[in-house]
Design a protein around this nucleic acid. Structure first.
Lengths: 243, 243
DNA sequence: AAGTGGTCTAGACCACGAC
DNA sequence: TCGTGGTCTAGACCACTTA
């Protein structure tokens, strides 16, 4: 069970613990080993174990009780779990119990609008990589996603881009840029005719609109996104824990 | 500047740093002192400083760059900042630049429906404390909030309840219960006539519906909430940072 | 009283960025 | 090369729960 080198020790411990919770080695609601037992078992210090447990606790995956122990949160297994999923639709679809798929409807270059240029801190009319993609849950379309990235970031030809990758991977693989933080606006809106045709007949009268902006560690705008979310089919479900 | 006893050392350091960012001692975009400087200045260990900085970083308030330094994130000041605000409408209204107010429309006891009983793990027909409240931004109604709490939790008479408190404080003051985690479902819905009358004429055709469930550290359901959110007036804006 | 998580310390070494 | 943040250790003491 002892941990070896490749990634950080803490990441490995986290991965192992997440796995044991996922596969039922630590069943829902059960008490997991104490910090001292884990640190001894993994051959790492208690401080390292603690940073990992703290990370799992803010997502609500575990519940910690002073003087008692640490328990697997049984309710979180049915929820979409952590906040990261807001920007990871594949995981979100999976946690809703569906098989995810991504269709790349269009990948093209076009000039930036005034508004896009302002948000991306570039000149209007500068070129953008513009992608329109459709996320499916068990084949049924559930999210229409439109993303734009300044074409100046691109370091591969347009044809090399794999439209099935999440935006985070596209920025990393084709632009060598890493997302440090994101700001999301959530709105509700009426379903228009073009959405009806894209998202299909199960669509209700309203959809959720998620407007995203991604930034690098240097505070540089990397990409924008507008996502239309069929909340009649897919639950947008967040969990948060305190202290 | 040295820190004294009352709360935990880490909490005090966090409060001081948040204050310096808020009041401009550390201006937006500027580099704040290094971990060693802070730890020496506060008279605490570097590990303590690091746990605080890690907490501020996940909310995107600061950006950390290895080999360089820690910077105040200038973009987060205009966003509603952290995830906590999803469940703290007063802070959310303030960060949108309005003056918040809460009207208690009704506070009463009633029997639980089948569905409520199931979600709260109580028997149907058991008594609930049911509150309907209206949040205003600069006097304009923006959120209609309905909350229910099992009456068995109450340890004060109904008349003693101050309807202007946030749900977290109501649970703590009147029920001696602390919220450990919450699960939120976000949906969009058409504006009905009763919402129109409650939320007023600026209301659009759609609203956001936030369904909340609050749980204790013992995984006991504490309260439910349904909130109708006028997203034409108020931005529901979340920020998240990675690693 | 024993065991748990909560807090904190003092120090070590590494990876990275700027100079 | 130097200073920064990133990682990790070994140990201490406290507060709390449980029995």
């Amino acid at each position: 069970m002892r941990v070896v080198q490749p990634k950080s020790v803490a990441d490995q411990v986290e991965e192992i613990l997440r796995g044991k919770i996922r596969d039922g080695t630590y069943p829902a609601g059960s008490r997991i080993p104490s910090e001292s037992e884990l640190s001894e078992g993994f051959g790492v210090s208690r401080a390292t174990v603690r940073t990992v447990l703290a990370k799992l606790a803010v997502n609500g995956m575990i519940l910690r009780k002073q003087g008692d122990g640490t328990y697997v949160n049984p309710r979180i297994r049915v929820a979409s779990a952590n906040f990261g999923s807001l920007w990871d639709f594949v995981t979100l679809i999976e946690s809703n119990g569906y098989k995810p798929a991504i269709d790349a409807l269009s990948i093209e270059l076009r000039a930036a609008s005034e508004k896009e240029a302002g948000a991306l801190a570039i000149e209007p009319q500068e070129n953008l990589l513009s992608m329109t993609r459709l996320f499916r849950a068990d084949e049924q379309p559930v999210i229409l996603a439109k993303n734009v990235i300044p074409a100046s970031f691109l370091c591969v030809p347009l044809g090399d881009i794999d439209g099935h990758l999440p935006i985070r991977d596209i920025l990393y693989k084709y632009c060598r840029q890493e997302i440090a933080f994101a700001i999301t606006d959530i709105r509700s809106m009426l379903t228009g005719p073009e959405l009806k045709s894209a998202l299909g007949d199960t669509l209700g009268d309203t959809v959720l609109e998620l407007q995203l902006a991604f930034y690098s560690r240097d505070n540089l705008p990397l990409a924008l996104g507008v996502n239309y979310f069929n909340d009649a089919t897919l639950r947008l479900c967040l969990a948060q824990a305190w202290s």
